[in-house]
């Protein structure tokens, strides 16, 4: 098994794990974690495929895409977390502060 195949298949599995988490976890934070997990799986597939020929340096295009993806993922996560906070904090404010 070549490293490329190994990591690419792991990426596929991680994507599925994230997908199942998105469906099966009730907690909203868990869903945000799931989306992150699925995203990491996709990144792993991309970067693994960038390195198909072991002798030459890896293909820069998928790497640049993943780099962009990581930064976009963290901002999307922050938006999701801000929404989550808004949801959890509004109703609970009056009784006990």
């Amino acid at each position: 098994m070549t490293p490329t195949l190994n990591y690419a298949l792991t990426g596929v599995v991680l994507f599925s794990v994230g997908l199942s988490g998105l469906f099966f976890c009730a907690h909203l934070l868990r869903k945000i974690l799931s989306v992150n997990m699925a995203g990491s799986g996709v990144f792993l597939v991309f970067v693994a495929l960038a390195r198909r020929q072991p002798d030459v340096p890896p293909d820069p295009v998928p790497q640049a895409l993943v780099l962009t993806g990581i930064v976009v993922a963290v901002s999307a996560t922050a938006v999701a977390l801000a929404l989550f906070r808004r949801l959890t904090h509004e109703p609970a404010e009056e009784p006990h502060g």
Partner: peptide
């Protein structure tokens, strides 16, 4: 996988910032 650029970003964001956000 030889993607050092990605590793640098992941080390700072994936392991540092995202965890802090959560």
């Amino acid at each position: 996988l030889g993607a050092v650029d990605v590793a640098l970003a992941e080390a700072a964001i994936g392991a540092g910032l995202t965890g802090a956000l959560f």
